[in-house]
Computed example of a mutant assay.
Amino acid sequence: MSTLLTVLDFLDDLPQARDLREHTYKALGDTVVDVGCGSGRAVGELAARGARAIGVDLDPAMIQVAAERWPSGEFHVADAAALPLDDGSVTGYRADKLLHALPEPERAVAEARRVLAANGRAVLVGHDWDTFVIDSDDPAFIRTLVHARADTMPHPRIARRYRNLLLDNGFADVTVEVHTIVWTGTEGLPMLAGLGEGAWLDDQDARARADRLFLAIPIFLASGTRAA
């Protein structure tokens, strides 16, 4: 738990991540549910903007952390496919870094449509786990590492399906954007450490300390409006 929180905090504190979060908050309205809220950063920020912000996560320990950190929010332990909300009760739905971890992500998107009011906005955010772009002298080995890490997840490539998931569940005005986060120094090493260990990681560490690391991760943001 402490390791996961450390990684989440590291990612949330990145300037690019802060800018992207702010971008996802646009047009969500005055009652917003953040599904897979984790440590609650987005819920706290939405509440500070004047919204009724509701955080939902399946992990009770994470919800406890979120409630302690962001007392201005409202938090619930619940499944993304069975939200504790009435039909049409929210104006905005947000799921960040969530759908790849779900066994049936399409059920979560159907649930988003259920809880959204007419003309409510859904925002799906995440990266395709096959698209870590890493400079290396052994690109074939890096591809093997990236794909092996991706294959440990239920739906590692779900981000490329965001648009179709929204369209298939009755959303209109669906758009997709790509925001790429780039690391060139030691601040990128925690992201690489999640792929494995060994000589390749030592090489990347040396690159980072010589200001020669290059890591880029495209983040996909899809949004749509619940048709009346």
Rank of each mutant, 00 (worst) to 15 (best):
R160P: 09
Y162D: 04
G55L: 08
S2T: 14
M153E: 13
T152M: 12
P156S: 08
V43W: 10
M153K: 12
R113L: 07
I63P: 03
G29W: 01
P154A: 13
M1K: 07
D173C: 07
R209I: 02
I142V: 15
G40F: 09
T144G: 05
R107W: 00
L195P: 03
V125L: 15
K97E: 12
L102E: 01
R163I: 08
F141G: 04
L83Y: 01
Y25R: 06
A80F: 02
E104S: 10
G185K: 05
V115Q: 08
A228W: 03
A118K: 05
L213E: 00
K26D: 15
A82Y: 02
A66N: 08
V109M: 00
H147I: 13
R161C: 08
F132S: 04
I181L: 13
T91K: 05
L8N: 09
E187W: 06
V176W: 07
A27T: 07
R41M: 14
L20D: 07
F75Y: 15
L5P: 05
T152S: 13
T144H: 09
A159S: 15
A222H: 02
P71Y: 04
D34K: 07
G36R: 11
G29C: 02
E106H: 05
A222V: 06
L8F: 14
W183R: 09
D19W: 07
D137T: 14
H179P: 04
R121L: 10
A42C: 14
S39E: 10
V35L: 05
A48D: 15
A172R: 11
H23P: 05
